[in-house]
Computed example of a mutant assay.
Amino acid sequence: MNVAEELFGSHLESISLYVDILAGKGIEWGLIGPREGDRIWDRHIFNSVAISDLLSQGATVVDVGSGAGLPGLPLAILRPDLRVTLLEPLLRRATFLAETVSELGLDDSVAVVRARAEDHRQRYDAVVSRALAPLDRLLTWCGPLRRRDGIIVALKGRTAADELAAVTPELNRQGLVGAVLAVRAHPATEVTSAVRLRSR
């Protein structure tokens, strides 16, 4: 049994369809780079669901600057208990997301909202983002979307620790605590860094 089968089980067909959409329309529409086609599973899907264990059962989740639906759509497929909002300000991307959600049959658990984070007024148990912006900007955008007992989770690369150190004074001012977590979707997949912020 391969990693995708082990991870997604009965949802393998849905996630495979999403990968096909990314490899086709995602590249055609410029949402995924043309060289990414062969690396979608490792670089995008497994990376996105590496933060799954940080999300509580039945959580409301907003994916800020969702783009092609990463990490929100892989999380929604893996975890049908989640209620996921894909927040995306650009029309072209929001259109792609709405069409993809419909094609995947996820209308009951995933909503697409075309808006900037600073204009969105709902609050969520978890605010997630992937390769969106430096942590100082993310804090400004994502902070107001977090419920008081909620978390912010940003998938980051090697800069995670440095970015967290840079915003620590602001976290202290806001009564937040941050941690860099080494996460992975499966023992056979790559470790990635995620920054988690929550109330003290």
Rank of each mutant, 00 (worst) to 15 (best):
I45Y: 09
S48G: 05
S56G: 14
E36S: 15
L78E: 03
G58P: 10
P71W: 03
S66F: 00
L73N: 11
D38T: 11
I45S: 12
P71M: 01
L82Q: 07
V62A: 10
E88G: 13
H44L: 02
L31Y: 11
G69L: 00
G30S: 10
D42C: 04
L78S: 00
A68P: 10
L90Y: 05
A59R: 02
I40T: 09
P80C: 00
L86D: 07
G33R: 09
L82M: 06
D38Y: 06
N47L: 06
R39W: 02
L78Y: 02
V49T: 07
S66W: 01
E88Y: 03
L54G: 12
R39M: 04
G69E: 01
A50G: 15
S48A: 15
P74F: 12
R83E: 12
W41Y: 09
D53Q: 13
H44P: 10
I51E: 06
I32V: 15
I51Y: 08
F46E: 04
D42M: 02
R35Y: 08
I77A: 06
R43L: 06
L31E: 11
E36Q: 14
D38V: 04
L91P: 00
L90F: 09
G58Q: 05
D81C: 14
I51S: 07
I51N: 07
L55G: 08
W41M: 04
I32Y: 04
L90C: 01
A76W: 04
I45P: 13
P71L: 00
A50T: 10
D63K: 08
V64A: 06
L54I: 13
L86R: 02
G67T: 07
G30M: 12
G69I: 00
E36N: 08
N47V: 06
F46S: 07
D81M: 13
D63T: 07
G72A: 08
Q57W: 11
V49S: 01
S66V: 00
L55A: 10
V61L: 14
